[in-house]
Nucleic acid binder design. Structure first.
Lengths: 107, 107
DNA sequence: TTGACATGCAGGTATTTGCCTGCATATAAG
DNA sequence: CTTATATGCAGGCAAATACCTGCATGTCAA
């Protein structure tokens, strides 16, 4: 699977985003530590972390029997640069607004 | 399903990103037009477009029997503001580099 | 009105996902 | 050495996904 696929898929799950948030608040936590705040088994959390690792959002550092998880923000910056930066605010929003006027709001 | 879930899920598929790219290059295309460049049936493309619409990335405008698709970049800006902006460049990359030194490169 | 065109709607199926249980392995501590 | 701790590995299962086929509906144009 290619790079942006892995990245967006990794971000598409609330449990995984929660893991990223926890690492953002307190980086370098072990698997067991990360498990304590999610209502699922250790094995499920492992699977989520594996996905985050595959997306290069989390890097692993072994210390003895402990597996420390470190957050890597670089791919997120790349997402911005390659996918979001080109959508500058004013440009296409005008079309959306135009639609609102032509059709009435169907939201 | 909540907002960021829909957004990231919509972006997690290469066909859907390709559709967004095509709309970025040439906005307001019909379903048939969008089908011509993807190697799948019209119904599959419809499903992808439905997902993009659910994520509010695409807005639809009916003109007679034609369904025009308009790109809406606002959710992408929100993604940046709510998820990416807080990961400023220098901060945590240092930890990733530290790991490289401690473990050797396992990439 | 009739025929062509644009799209919708209703399934059917193979694959992927997300979660689980059960057991195995490796490290730390007494 | 023995026990507790931290994690890995294998497999199973229900739900979601991403395709498809077949048929129905609505709109334009002659």
């Amino acid at each position: 699977m290619n790079k942006p696929d892995l990245l967006f898929k990794a971000l598409a799950d609330p449990s995984r985003r929660k893991l990223l948030d926890r690492l953002y608040a307190n980086d370098g936590q072990t698997l067991s530590q990360l498990c304590t705040h999610l209502d699922m088994t250790r094995q499920s959390v492992t699977q989520h972390l594996d996905l985050l690792e595959a997306a290069n959002l989390v890097t692993v550092l072994w210390r003895g029997r402990e597996k420390l998880h470190l957050l890597n923000p670089v791919p997120l910056q790349e997402v911005y640069e390659r996918w979001l930066a080109k959508f500058e605010k004013p440009r296409l929003k005008a079309l959306h607004d135009l639609k609102q006027r032509l059709e009435g709001d169907d939201t």
